[in-house]
Design a protein around this nucleic acid. Structure first.
Lengths: 343, 343
DNA sequence: CACATGAGGATAAACGTTTATCCTAACGTC
DNA sequence: GACGTTAGGATAAACGTTTATCCTCATGTG
């Protein structure tokens, strides 16, 4: 029950006009207001250091300039970068941002949407590694909340931004093949339908198929786009005496885990094992050896998502409901020709 | 002007009771309500999938369970980790989070506070590398917004969480000295009064003084807690033919930049140059060689900040207005005795 | 019977805005 | 002199809640 702040009522009292007039002036609607009155109101509003109460404004005008950002994990640098892009662009466009982490759990996604609905967000950007569920879309539509999906395109996700994961993955694997690798392991995260993980896996499989290379199921690992998963799966790969000369990773975090496991096993990158990642997180450039990976422009994706969302929120015409970013293969030092086999 | 959602008015109409009764039941106040009426209201509310409108609730009750998170840069993994801790704890306590980036700029801090005031946040966590300004505190007090400062303790910042930066820095430098280093460079970020940067620098200076080692001003660099600054300052250090065998870095990002510059200059860590960082970001454990650094428990700091803030927001008694975390020296592989001098 | 009591609920004001509509005095017009 | 017009502003409803107060009816009590 904290004391309330300065309101337009205070201004109207001091300026000896009605609150309606104050409201108009403060909204830069100067019709039907004399210059003198306008100046008086503006001056007093400044003196009192008036700040509008967005709750009241939102309640009556049905405009609440708050956007919801739903991400799997803000502490993941990739999403941190994207969130930064979203936050910056939102600020530029006069909006604020509310954020929620889901850890890629359906229940938490639902929960976030509902909470954001309660808080009357103007729109939501949905990010996730498991694709947008029909349930999510249904909920967003029921609450009539405009949304944009990022990396996350279910059958019904009409508005979305994504990176061509299939092609990016294809190129990375193709690079390994060009270097002469034939026994290529693949470690990835979640592989649900219509998700980035799914597309990247298909890119891998197609690249192998196009080169007439067999895919050894024992070399296919999933479990999560995390460093820990990369570490564990690599150890698992090594422990079974599998034959492989390269690992394609579903993202950079997995690659980071692979580095660690390989190093602990006294294997050198790229001499013993070549490695490619996905995302191009900022630290991959400082690793030793520097990681060859596929760049996703996280910051720009975030910006673009907000741009599209705000267009929807404000009912502006939208050029394209779907925007695809091209991934870029960044060739660095973690890929080399396979070592001669001694077996 | 999107259509409005289900309200308690809809429920009251269907249940044939007044909205006051509906409100009471929905707030779990069952006094003066018959069991039958209660069940009916609950059932109908469920059927209609009612969600409260927080704007309306906040307007009248002066309780709006939204907290403001002001951070320098969410894409910095250290703050990402902390933000995650804050977000998780807020959710646990029934609050939501609004986020704003400042890039350590005073003007943007002010702006964030004002915007959050307009949005009626219940409280604010202020994070920053430049210390909390008197202006910030004045603003927060004027708007009567409870706040907690993190790593960020001006003369007036009564409620705050921080890490003993001085001691952490002291220990790291002490380690270098114990290994036999005498010519130690120091690269840091912003060094404003009452800021982490200030304390870390003092820790460095004191450790040097206690070991009777002179400090060479040419080896003291600042400019920002960024990878880029670490990179540039290291190159600058190298280009001037300075004598040094170790670099103490103000944080891990700077250390990452130093790694990169050293590698490009064909210098090996730790054989040619030893390196210590600060923060213990997750990737420092996967670097080659693994970085010796001072661990700050970012996630826990975030959690604790929210816990303290919510105590203030809800007017609960607070045990300690100031909470200090002890930094932990994590000894890994980036420190070795200095090479024999050949000069 | 007159009256207090309490259960169960309705009424209405309030929160701080926006916005459609209404009012009034001054002036011009024929 | 009756009437329209306009500038400048006031009034009041509305948004969706919470909450203090009031109302009504049935029951109990002496």
């Amino acid at each position: 029950m904290r004391p309330t702040r300065v309101t337009i009522k205070d201004i109207s009292r001091k300026a000896e006009v009605s609150i309606a007039t104050v409201s108009k002036v403060l909204n830069h609607d100067y019709s039907r207001v004399s210059d003198e009155t306008r100046e008086r109101i503006l001056r007093i509003s400044n003196e009192l250091n008036y700040r509008p109460n967005m709750l009241a404004r939102g309640l009556v005008s049905h405009k609440f300039n708050l956007l919801g950002l739903i991400v799997p994990d803000i502490s993941n640098p990739y999403y941190g970068e994207m969130a930064r892009g979203m936050s910056d662009e939102a600020e530029t466009l006069g909006y604020s941002a509310m954020i929620s982490n889901t850890d890629n759990q359906r229940a938490r996604e639902i929960n976030s949407i509902q909470t954001m609905a309660e808080y009357n967000v103007g729109g939501i950007v949905m990010t996730g590694e498991i694709g947008v569920s029909e349930e999510n879309v249904a909920l967003l539509k029921r609450y009539r909340i405009p949304y944009v999906g990022v990396e996350n395109y279910g059958p019904d996700a009409d508005y979305c931004i994504y990176v061509d994961n299939y092609t990016g993955s294809y190129k990375a694997v193709q690079l390994l093949i060009e270097y002469g690798h034939r026994d290529i392991a693949y470690i990835t995260g979640h592989v649900e339908l219509h998700s980035p993980g799914d597309d990247r896996l298909r890119g891998f499989l197609q690249a192998m198929a196009d080169a007439d290379l067999p895919v050894n199921p024992a070399l296919l690992k999933s479990g999560g786009f995390t460093l820990d998963n990369g570490y564990r799966q690599t150890l698992s790969l090594l422990s079974r005496n599998n034959q492989f000369t390269a690992i394609a990773c579903g993202n950079d975090l997995i690659a980071l885990g692979a580095y660690q496991a390989l190093r602990e096993s006294r294997l050198r990158v790229p001499l013993d094992v070549s490695l490619v990642g996905f995302d191009d997180m900022f630290m991959t450039n400082t690793m030793e050896p520097r990681l060859t990976t596929v760049k996703q422009p996280a910051y720009e994706i975030g910006e673009e998502a907000i741009r599209m969302l705000v267009h929807r929120v404000e009912n502006n015409p939208i050029a394209d409901k779907v925007k695809c970013f091209e991934p870029l293969l960044v060739s660095r030092d973690s890929v080399a020709p396979p070592a001669k086999k001694e077996s």
